[in-house]
Amino acid sequence: MSRWIEKNLKWVFPAPAVIFIVVMMAFPILYTAWISLTEWSMSAVTPAKFIGLENYINLLGKDHRFWMSVWRTFYFTGLALVGETLIGLVLAVMLNRDFPGKNLLKTLFLLPMVATPVAIGMVWLLMFEPTIGYLNHFLKSLHLPQSLWLASEGSALASLVLVDIWQWTPMMALIILAGLVSMPSDPFEAAEVDGASAWQTFWHVTLPMLRPTIGMAVILRSIDALKTFDIIYSMTQGGPNYATETLNLYGYNLGFGYFQMGAASSLLMIFFAIVMGVVIFMNWARKGALS
């Protein structure tokens, strides 16, 4: 028996995990896929009516709000990732140097990412308040122009990006820092022998060596950024005037606000395909860059 297990370890070991994932996910996904082909208001009296691909055609072909939410999802993710990577890189380079209290500082930088998003959303909500919030007061005291933050269509999504950057930049920084620390020293010595400047060394030696680390971190982060829900739900619920309605929020509103379960399900299927596509594309790009 035990020999049999050993021979088939490849199957036996992952089996419980795989069965669990399949059992928990297969029914919801199949169910959603089926509902996405129907028109259904979640009624207990009128059953779901099969309408083929009509929900998809409506979303992709006619629904302006859908395309706006796609755009916002990518805008949010893109801006957040660029910000987090750049600021994270700067912060990592700054932390890659010994000074007293460095460990404590590194530890404190962990806090934004582990703090509960719905709770942190409430704190930012209070700080963003245009009249009673601290941020505007702070800007005012520096004689800088104030912003309406979440209260205006123009700045609401960018304000949420700011929260995301606050939350996740430290993670990027710590990952990049770990990459910096684990680098072999030979290339740097070679660069020094060649008389390269600090900037040249950074650009031609450090960055290329960091690329796989950053690449993987960006992929993992982009999955979560595309799916951001808690922060947006607790702060704006997609408003004002849909200015922060990403795909996840629009799906939520279609289902729980408008009771259009068929349309919501087809949106979720498209959303799933988009995230999957982004992951596959980025993974392909990363591998391409490596070889």
């Binding site: 308040e129 245009p130 009249t131 104030q146 309406l148 933050w149 979440l150 209260a151 205006s152 269509e153 609401a156 704006t236 408003g239 004002p240 005037n241």
Partner: peptide, 12 residues
């Protein structure tokens, strides 16, 4: 009205 009125529910 006050600035930021577009994001105001009754709470604000």
């Amino acid at each position: 009205g006050p600035p930021g009125v577009l994001n105001m529910h009754w709470q604000q």
